[in-house]
Simulated assay, not measured.
Amino acid sequence: MSLRDTAKHTARRCRRERDAVATRQAILEAARTLFAHDSYECVTIRDIASKAGIDPALVIRYFGSKEDLFLATLDKGNCSSLPGGESMGLGHGLIHHYISHWSKQDASDPLLIMIRSASSNDSSDILRQALNEQFLQPIAEQVGGPDGHLRAELALSQLIGVNIMRSLLHTEALSAIPDEQLIQIVGSVCQHYLSDELEETSTSKEEPIERR
């Protein structure tokens, strides 16, 4: 093969690789947008392909299945490297991470996608897997301790609540609050869950009051 033929072959290969990357990204963005607006079982491969402007067969070619594509839409801005490596300050780092990566105007917010499909029987196992791998486990590992996972769930429950109020219900006060103020307020609550002592409910029966 001549140098000219080699150059042409290399150029064609590079174009194919760029096209493949662009096609995969178009599918992923289309899926994120659709899953953020409807539940898992209501979004079809054909819907995603139409949104991306491609043939449905390409969706399967690039992602294998609807389940694998759904998982891929949740793999965005996870909590594996939050600011504040120690438990102190991690609560503010968590809400800061949320604000930075998942803007209230971002249609591809992973938590919003999860909320949309939370009641879907078809996606329940996928959601639990993604929630644990991308959110709960990374937070629990940074917090440490035997109750790290519980603390992570309590903190994340705050973010889910904020997400519902801001992104789904668009409540006036919470939607209007500046991000910096939201980080301080919600961050303090998250920090309480992540580092303060958690109250334990006593299971022992109270001693009867002695009558005189």
Score class of each variant (00 low, 15 high):
1 M>T: 10
3 L>V: 13
3 L>Q: 09
5 D>N: 13
7 A>T: 09
10 T>Q: 10
10 T>R: 15
13 R>N: 04
15 R>D: 10
19 D>N: 15
20 A>N: 08
21 V>P: 06
24 R>A: 12
26 A>N: 13
27 I>Q: 02
30 A>F: 10
31 A>L: 02
31 A>N: 12
31 A>V: 08
38 D>K: 06
40 Y>T: 02
45 I>M: 07
46 R>Q: 11
47 D>R: 10
48 I>F: 08
50 S>Q: 09
50 S>V: 10
51 K>A: 14
53 G>L: 03
55 D>T: 12
55 D>W: 11
58 L>M: 02
58 L>C: 00
58 L>I: 00
60 I>K: 09
62 Y>S: 08
65 S>D: 00
66 K>W: 03
72 A>Q: 14
73 T>K: 11
74 L>A: 02
75 D>Q: 14
76 K>S: 05
80 S>V: 10
81 S>P: 02
85 G>H: 12
89 G>T: 03
90 L>R: 12
90 L>Y: 06
96 H>E: 12
98 Y>A: 07
99 I>D: 14
101 H>S: 14
101 H>D: 03
101 H>I: 06
101 H>Q: 11
104 K>L: 08
104 K>N: 07
105 Q>L: 07
109 D>F: 03
110 P>S: 02
110 P>R: 00
110 P>E: 00
111 L>P: 03
112 L>W: 02
115 I>Y: 13
116 R>W: 04
117 S>A: 10
123 S>M: 10
127 L>D: 03
128 R>T: 06
130 A>M: 05
134 Q>I: 05
135 F>D: 05
142 Q>A: 12
142 Q>G: 14
148 G>L: 14
150 L>F: 14
150 L>Y: 09
154 L>K: 08
156 L>A: 06
157 S>F: 09
161 G>A: 01
161 G>R: 00
162 V>E: 01
162 V>P: 01
164 I>R: 00
173 A>P: 01
175 S>C: 11
176 A>M: 05
176 A>R: 12
179 D>L: 04
181 Q>I: 08
183 I>H: 05
184 Q>S: 15
184 Q>C: 13
185 I>K: 11
186 V>R: 02
187 G>I: 01
187 G>K: 01
191 Q>H: 05
193 Y>D: 11
194 L>W: 15
198 L>I: 15
199 E>F: 10
199 E>G: 15
200 E>Q: 15
201 T>K: 15
203 T>A: 09
203 T>G: 13
205 K>Q: 13
205 K>T: 13
209 I>H: 08
211 R>L: 07
